[in-house]
Write a protein that binds this DNA or RNA. Structure first.
Lengths: 216, 216
DNA sequence: GCCTAACCTGAATGACCGTTCAATATCCGC
DNA sequence: GCGGATATTGAACGGTCATTCAGGTTAGGC
């Protein structure tokens, strides 16, 4: 029994290890620079196994994207449940974007995904789903704040869209290490925009700097 | 004499044709999908000539980037000189970003450049220079407006950074044809943000829709 | 303890593609 | 109009890499 359960899990674990390795290698070298050999080396398996499980390199990429999605959702939920109240939560989001976490803040990987989404349908679907979820989370925080009367936005839907897009735009500079762009600046620039968009009272900004940041 | 001038120019023309073809192919297939053969076909030359002139495929990419820069600068200057006054000019910028022009608005090419800039130094330099110039132009318009008293920004430098980043972020959705994102929406979302950031009086927005748009 | 199916390996295969090269063609100064 | 330099070609080369394959290994039902 015990043996059965363990044994049955082994191949599945192997599979997942390959997917994690795939993400790691893509993060490092980009889609274009990722070879089957690299993944095999990173996962500690043979090239053959990757093709056995996923049929092709593209198949491995596609499968790794759904793992990426799952992890992103999970981490997002965990992160947001950590902090309560609309203002601290929003501030937390501002800091989340700047942090280079394994799933949420990995902006270079995000850039890769965007470009791959231009031509690959799996990537397109993954990135769209990721983005929708992310905007939904932001939207939820904004709605909370509106309901509580701490935020005032003329057009909340548009504000959410803009704030999400702004984060992507700032992320590009962060990802490319544009001189002058730091995580601190990232957070402050975004936060100021949020203040402006959502009419947050200045006191809100003061809560921010200590508002539930939890660097893993 | 006449012949001399013409003949001397022929190879140079050929060279430029290759660079233009390179840009066109990259636009279509991305850096990762661009082959020497594709460029040769698009330029109507042999593969050999591309290597003869640029040494390698990467060399051709690098050289094409400087052509891209030149064209971008030229087009930017031309576009901005077309319209006078800070508010119409800003509005023009809002519409420029949405337009898929050959040099300015080609957002998919921009995404490609961003990703390439992660690992390629020529691309990094090109994109940084492009971005600086672009932000400078935006900055200039903002300064104009401040001097004229039509804009009021608490922190103009930060506003420029945010407005530039917002455009990039919105551009991603436009480039990936995110459902719901249109050129009209792009323009309006950005414009609203500009209004908010720069404290433009509502009348400014009314000038906008007809303010010197010139679709080439 | 055997048999079958799932798992796994790494060497062999073959296609693709950047680069090289030998052979023209073109041109300009003379 | 000749000669050497500059352009240009396209076929051949060689390396890289995804994919295939023939052959193990393992595990669990019987």
């Amino acid at each position: 029994m015990a043996k059965t359960a363990l044994a049955a899990k082994a191949p599945e674990e192997r599979r997942e290890r390959i997917l994690r390795a795939t993400i790691a290698v893509v993060r490092e070298r980009g889609f274009a620079g990722t070879r089957v050999t690299d993944i095999a080396a990173a996962a500690g398996t043979s090239q053959g196994l990757i093709l056995y499980h996923f049929g092709s390199l593209a198949g491995a990429f596609a499968a790794s994207l759904t793992l990426l999605e799952d992890e992103f959702y999970e981490e997002l939920d965990r992160n947001l449940s950590e902090v309560v109240g609309p203002v601290p939560r929003l501030r937390h989001i501002a800091e989340l974007g700047a942090g280079y976490g394994p799933a949420v803040g990995d902006w270079r990987l995000w850039l890769e995904l965007w470009v791959r989404a231009i031509r690959d349908d799996d990537a397109r679907a993954a990135r769209e789903s990721l983005d929708t979820r992310w905007r939904g989370a932001l939207r939820q925080v904004v709605d909370e704040g509106l309901a509580a009367g701490v935020f005032a936005a003329r057009d909340p839907k548009a504000s959410v869209l803009r704030l999400a897009a702004l984060m992507d735009g700032l992320a590009i500079q962060l990802a490319l290490a544009e001189p002058g762009m730091t995580t601190g600046k990232f957070t402050e620039l975004w936060w100021q925009s949020a203040v402006l968009e959502l009419g947050i009272s200045p006191s809100g900004a003061k809560i921010g700097p200590t508002g539930g940041v939890r660097k893993k």
